[in-house]
Simulated scan of single mutants.
Amino acid sequence: MLVRGKETDVKLITANKSTQKSSKNYTQSLAVSILFQTKTGRNIKLLFNNNNLKLEHWENELDEFLILIREHYQDYPNDKISKKIKDLSPKEYYIIYVILSPETKELEFHDDITFLSKIKK
């Protein structure tokens, strides 16, 4: 799945008059994401960065995320996911986004507001 997603060339099409809606700084894959639901019903979406990251980084990101998911279901509420999202927006309809930092190669957790501010930089 990751190999095909990494190789897939996806284009985002916008209306002629709404080109400002697509961010020039959005580098996450438009072909691949993984959605997971926490024990409390929050949706978490794992995104994969297209810029400067190799397939091996995507594979490591997925492996790390799967470990966190398993831990979440076994150790809730004392797991790493619960601790990482506790300071994010409590609004249940907000998606929690998980991205791999291109600089540190560590997973970062964002809610809608922190994610949008990150990609608008």
Rank of each mutant, 00 (worst) to 15 (best):
N49A: 02
K91A: 06
E56Y: 09
D112N: 08
E61V: 04
K39Q: 06
I96D: 00
F109A: 01
K118P: 03
L12P: 04
I99K: 07
Y26M: 09
S101K: 00
R70L: 13
N16G: 05
K45C: 09
I99L: 10
Q28K: 03
L66I: 10
L68P: 06
F109W: 05
Q20L: 04
A15T: 13
Q74N: 15
L35P: 12
S82V: 03
K91R: 10
L116M: 14
K11T: 11
I44N: 01
K24P: 03
N16L: 08
S82I: 04
E64G: 05
R4A: 15
T27L: 10
T114S: 08
T114K: 01
A15W: 06
T104F: 13
I95E: 09
F48W: 01
Q74K: 15
K24Y: 02
N50H: 09
P90Q: 11
N52E: 15
K121E: 15
Q37S: 10
E92M: 07
Y26S: 07
A15P: 07
K6Y: 14
Y97P: 04
K17W: 14
L68R: 02
E71F: 02
K120T: 12
S101A: 09
V98W: 06
T19I: 15
S22N: 07
W58K: 10
I85M: 01
N60H: 15
Y94S: 05
L30Q: 14
Y93C: 15
G5V: 06
L55Y: 02
T8A: 14
H57W: 07
F115E: 00
R70C: 05
I13T: 15
M1D: 06
K83W: 05
T104C: 07
Y76P: 03
S29Q: 00
M1V: 02
T14I: 15
L116W: 13
L35G: 14
S117W: 08
Y97G: 01
F115Q: 00
S117F: 04
K21A: 06
K86A: 15
E59R: 12
L55P: 07
S33I: 02
K84S: 05
N60A: 10
S18F: 12
I99R: 01
N49H: 04
K80T: 15
D111V: 01
K84E: 14
D112F: 08
V3G: 03
E108Q: 11
L100S: 11
P90H: 09
L53F: 10
R4F: 15
F36N: 09
T27K: 14
K118L: 13
S29C: 04
I95D: 09
K45N: 12
L30C: 09
L100D: 07
S22T: 08
S29K: 02
L107S: 01
K84W: 03
K54E: 15
D112C: 05
L116A: 11
K39R: 08
I44T: 00
K80S: 14
I69E: 07
I13V: 13
E59I: 15
N51L: 14
H57V: 01
D63C: 12
V32C: 09
K120A: 13
E106Q: 13
Y73Q: 01
P102D: 05
